[in-house]
Nucleic acid binder design. Sequence first.
DNA 1: AAAACGGTCAACCGCTCTCAG
DNA 2: GCTGAGAGCGGTTGACCGTTT
Length: 331
Amino acid sequence: MGRGRAPCCAKVGLNRGSWTPQEDMRLIAYIQKHGHANWRALPRQAGLLRCGKSCRLRWINYLRPDLRRGNFTAEEEATVIKLHALLGNKWSKIAACLPGRTDNEIKNVWNTHLKKKASEQKPGVGESKGEAADGDPDTPAPSLSSASSSMTTSDGSNGGAGEQCGTSNEPETINVPSPLELELEPVMDILDMLADEPTEAFATAAPMPTSSCSSSSLTTCAGGGGGVEELLELPDIDMDADIWSIIDDDVARLQQGDATVPCTTKEGSEWWLEDLEKELGLWGPAEESQPQAGPLDQIGYPGQLYETEGDMVMVSSCPPSRSDHEASNSE
DNA sequence: AAAACGGTCAACCGCTCTCAG
DNA sequence: GCTGAGAGCGGTTGACCGTTT
């Protein structure tokens, strides 16, 4: 109430719309180095002409290292459907049960096809709290374990995307009893409570222990892959110029094929960027990478520079064109 | 072969909640 | 206890791409 405040971005002089590869690189480099303690200040300190909100969204929905990508597995879809039946449009909470998936992504998937699917599955049973609605005798708990299996299995039908995301993300979690289970545990509790008391119980009983996976903080996410958190522990430092030296330095080293450059090494905590690049078809020898559409046609490998608007830009991660995304999905 | 249509997804907008001063 | 700032969430929109006519 009355918490009115100016929009986070005065819409003057700030970039809007799709993110460019260089913007992505700046954001990634900055967060890798300094974390994201203060989203509002981040774009200024990182030298980005974006509002903090936009940066946050970009990071959370696309650049975050612990993201899974590619099509939803059947298990994930089932989980979303069931959780939606339980929670409604609480996308962030649903996302908390699907590590590596973002609320935005789940929302989109729901609105595009799961909604239809769900209504087809349960023509008249929709209001029965969801659990057995799809004819599956399983209670929500089994559905969650399905989700957990989907995490480690990853969908082979994703044309490679699945392999990069899920498994490479947490190879160890397969044998270890459970980062994921631990993560899902509170959710199970929540669902348990929901079985008795609808939605209100959730609010009180769920301090959102897992929400970090969906959107709040990478540092606490089980899927985050160890070392990343260390990178993000650094305090917020004011360094407009510094970010450039980071990027410039990395660019230079990348061009020399220096595998120790953060964004390129698989051994460090930056493996995810490689994965991202692979998924975008920007990684590896030409014969292996997918044909790029549009402006990316002129782009070679990660680390390679190309010029745009008089700016030198490093080929690395970039917002995937739809063709990239769908190419990987259509397999 | 071209145009129209529909589907999908990334990004933006505005509101609410939480926390620090 | 109050106020303001920042973060997070859910809804909506616009652009792009594929499919159908």
